[in-house]
Design a protein around this nucleic acid. Sequence first.
DNA 1: TCAAAAGTGTTCGCACTACACCCATGG
DNA 2: CCATGGGTGTAGTGCGAACACTTTTGA
Lengths: 245, 245
Amino acid sequence: MKVINDLEKAEDLNMQLNYYDKEDQVLLAVDCIIFGFDKENLKILLIKRNFEPEKGRWSLIGGFLKKNENLDQAAVRVLNALTGLTDIYMEQLYTHSKIDRDPGQRTISVSYYALIDVESHKFDGIQIDSARWFELNEAPNLIFDHNEMIQRAIARLRRRALTNPIGFELLPEKFTMRQLQNLYESILDKKLDKRNFINKINSLDVLIKLDEKDMTVSRKGAYLYVFDKDKYQKKVEEDGFIFKI
Amino acid sequence: MKVINDLEKAEDLNMQLNYYDKEDQVLLAVDCIIFGFDKENLKILLIKRNFEPEKGRWSLIGGFLKKNENLDQAAVRVLNALTGLTDIYMEQLYTHSKIDRDPGQRTISVSYYALIDVESHKFDGIQIDSARWFELNEAPNLIFDHNEMIQRAIARLRRRALTNPIGFELLPEKFTMRQLQNLYESILDKKLDKRNFINKINSLDVLIKLDEKDMTVSRKGAYLYVFDKDKYQKKVEEDGFIFKI
DNA sequence: TCAAAAGTGTTCGCACTACACCCATGG
DNA sequence: CCATGGGTGTAGTGCGAACACTTTTGA
């Protein structure tokens, strides 16, 4: 009896000390799906790998989680290292863990998506020469399970854009109604009625119409708008207002 | 020139061989938020830990990813090991990576949520004696970031239940309209109008009304229904039908 | 006969949809 | 003066919300 108790104690202690020791460790990667909008079309940023494995093929930008950071920080670091971008909207998406997803070594990858306005972000990044924007439906075949990651990101973006004002992350600060509509048409991949769209947006009452016009596209010029973040926040806090297009 | 090329080649080779070697490895855990419904209320299953660290405190059930499985498989294995449950609806939720979330060792945890009908699953699991169902708002304070995981799971369940027929995972095969309504009221945490609810459900046209009645609750008895999965699937495939309550 | 839950329809208002013409301007 | 994109309003319809009484039957 005593012996058994001691044995149990010893095992308990052993368990406590080595609780984690017998478990398998893995490499944890972060891959970023970077959506960009250039006032016309929704695109994604891809890089041609100049390193192994799969050197020369197109892929999402990615990197590995380090001991001294969390995943959000890793995603920001990876994005910044390869594009020079900072202060970008990013959101965790999904964790991919198929056993052979990376043939080089067992790697689990957490995907993030980022939203940026293409034109107001000219890259100072290291790897610019090997990075390129692709139309959503013209993207090349990618390494590993990166195609699947993109599909998942598109689905998420589609849902999110309908109930959260994240669309504005993809536009310059000042934008025209037409640009906003183009954006939503790109995201949802369908045509919207101009009048209905404007009515709906206006009824949300979170845009400020400026006196300024964008004269670059038409003769008449189109009024510029800005998204009123404060007003939006107040509405959410006060009425439980939900942004819904 | 030649020298540089050779050097580059050597570095390339080195990079290829050791590409993953210099990266930090981490422990990857899986934690399960198990929702159950007992015809009245929505609950979650928690266990009192009989092992270190945090022995004696309540937590989600969890375990570590092994080399020979993916995360979905790990979640199923962990759920089964601790409850004996099989064939349960599970879905990946979010990956938690705060640096000190587990003080014992740097651990990243992927949360999953599971949906089960409490009464038709009597546990044969190993750790039954230390497991208990809690009402959502009576759950004790949990270890690590498990409270946050639950909050995220509730939010997801709420959204999902409105557009996917996952609610039925929480009910027995045969159920009454009142039970279905109770379920949705629990998930959404608000009262619904009886007539409107029934009209809405009937308009979806995915339930089969049986001739059988549940006589256990009222004198009059209430008709039993079953969810018609095939009909639902056909609708989705044919019309792009979306389940929406 | 009464208590307790089940079952059943209608009205109203709002939000979504469809739809076409004039405006302002630069070339 | 004309070509180009910008801007505007309304009528009809369908859906969600509010709402109360009758039925059944076991105790």
